[in-house]
Simulated scan of single mutants.
Amino acid sequence: MSKKIVTTDVPAEPSLDQSSHSLSVFVNNTPGVLMRITQVFARRGFNIDSLVVSEGRDERFSRMTIGITGSSNGLEQIIKQVSKLIDVIHCIQHEADDSVVKELVLIKLLIKSTEDRTSALQIIDHFNGKTVDLTPESIIAMISGDSGKLDAAIKMFGNFEIVETVRTGKVVMARGGATT
């Protein structure tokens, strides 16, 4: 007679709430602060999709813009944990309607003919981009905007031979008098 194993454990269903969030973290400009912040996200199971760090107007401080994907349920806890870290001045979540969010992409294209060059320049112009390098064999285009615009531009350049793309993460600034 075989034994039947009975368990009351119910396997966890994968969370369907995997939405994107943008956080702005204002920190003291000290070594190790980035590592401590990213560990909070890793421990909570959030994936960091983009990370932009730059020195502020005052060189003693830096601003981090962190694009993450994960469940909204644990987001408030992450914000609280990050805010408690040494060297963190504040951590704020930004919604699309209360902030300006932009990205930038550089796209290098091989150009094989005059017609290709003309077509590429028209696409760059359509997306309000700039040609930042131009040689007889290649073009480097710079396009800025929201994620959807950059995705569409890259798709349009799919008819060309794309040598490489370099894409920044999202940068966020709160609208009006709100703090970023």
Rank of each mutant, 00 (worst) to 15 (best):
T7E: 06
T7W: 06
T7Y: 09
T8Q: 11
T8F: 08
T8P: 01
D9L: 15
D9W: 14
V10W: 02
V10I: 11
V10D: 00
V10E: 02
P11T: 11
P11H: 08
P11N: 04
P11Q: 10
P11F: 09
A12K: 07
A12P: 06
A12H: 12
E13K: 06
E13Y: 06
E13R: 04
E13C: 02
P14G: 00
P14A: 07
P14C: 05
P14T: 13
P14N: 08
S15R: 12
S15Y: 06
L16V: 15
L16T: 12
D17M: 07
D17R: 11
D17T: 09
D17K: 13
Q18S: 08
Q18F: 08
Q18M: 14
Q18H: 10
Q18W: 07
S19D: 09
S19A: 11
S20G: 02
S20I: 13
S20D: 08
S20P: 00
H21C: 05
H21V: 07
H21S: 05
H21E: 01
H21M: 02
S22T: 14
S22D: 15
L23C: 05
L23A: 02
L23W: 04
L23H: 04
L23Y: 05
S24P: 03
S24C: 15
V25T: 09
V25D: 03
V25Q: 02
F26E: 03
F26Q: 05
F26L: 14
F26M: 14
F26T: 10
V27R: 01
V27H: 05
V27G: 01
V27M: 03
N28W: 07
N28Y: 09
N28E: 10
N29M: 04
N29R: 14
N29K: 11
N29E: 05
T30M: 06
T30G: 01
T30P: 02
P31A: 03
P31V: 01
G32S: 04
G32L: 03
V33M: 05
V33L: 04
V33W: 04
V33D: 01
V33S: 06
L34K: 01
L34C: 05
L34R: 01
M35T: 09
M35H: 15
R36F: 01
R36D: 02
I37E: 03
I37F: 00
I37D: 00
T38Q: 07
Q39R: 14
Q39C: 07
Q39P: 06
V40I: 14
V40P: 00
V40S: 00
F41Q: 08
F41I: 10
F41P: 07
A42S: 14
A42G: 10
A42K: 14
R43T: 11
R43P: 13
R43C: 12
R44Q: 07
R44V: 01
R44W: 10
R44L: 10
G45E: 11
G45I: 11
G45T: 14
G45V: 15
G45A: 14
G45N: 07
F46Q: 10
F46D: 05
N47V: 10
N47M: 07
